[in-house]
Amino acid sequence: MNRRLPPAARWLLHRAVGAVLVLWGAASLAFLVLHLVPGDPVTTLLGASATDSAALRQEILREYRLDDPLAVQYAAFLGRLATGDLGSSYQQQQPVSLIIGEQLGDTAQLSLSALVLLVAGALVTAAATAGRRRRVRGAVSGAELVAVSTPAFWLGIVLLTVFSFRLNLFPVAGAGDWRSLVLPVVTLAVPFGSLLAQVLREGMEAALHQPFALTARSRGLSGTALRLRHALRHAAVPAVTLSGWLAGGLLGGTVMVETVFARPGLGRVALDAISNRDIPVVVGLVLLSAAVYLVVNAFADLLCLWADPRLRSPA
């Protein structure tokens, strides 16, 4: 790339080109896979309409240009995407952007709340247990291991049984006030939070064994201050690197949790769209998650640069 550009601009250009490539690849893959799997979008388009005649099917095929060769359909698809048109849902006869936009708020609320809870929880457990006595550490990391390996749907069902059915503390299903959010958020946050806590603690312990930890202690710093002022930042780089993966995991987990708790949101939209071969909606969702992934990763890279000055200079 152009060497005369300032490094920041070059980085941005590099990123932008990469982002376009990723989005193109994601859209193309989704398009291809959905055309290859067996099933018939025409049936979806007919929906519950009473008449199912050959003539009507022909008309639909022509209207949606589903009888064109695949290459032509693909080209038209990319052309529409390039102008920002995600198309209309086969099933709901509404623009995809509208369908996704309607449900985005609920999903964002759920996953962002879970993100806040899991990051906070991971930071606290890691900071409190890193470099502590073996027994404390063993017990906590054992608990984390169990939490990481717990399937989200199972945890959701257990939480529902205890807190909703038995104790009647939280609603069983649906979206309403904050109380309906508690159990889904906890279900989502626990496994990912435990994983993050483990990565953070490992990073902090590695830092606590570095010579600079001894130097810091020799200045009169307390163990807690050493963890917060020095070790945490060292743990940030591996933890932030993990967050790209975490974003993907959270999105996937949201689908599951929304189903278990019967919440509105993108999870249910995705489930419906895939089972009905509603190609435009699926492609829209794929593009959305790819975009989220790209943004999170770019953000993570910036965060790493902030945390570790050694990554900034090319030397």
Partner: peptide
């Protein structure tokens, strides 16, 4: 520590917090 007794260790690259 740091007030009455100060410590200077070997290899300042490791002994100073690199971040």
């Amino acid at each position: 520590r740091g007030r009455v007794v100060g410590l200077v260790s070997q290899d300042a690259l490791g002994a100073l917090d690199p971040l």
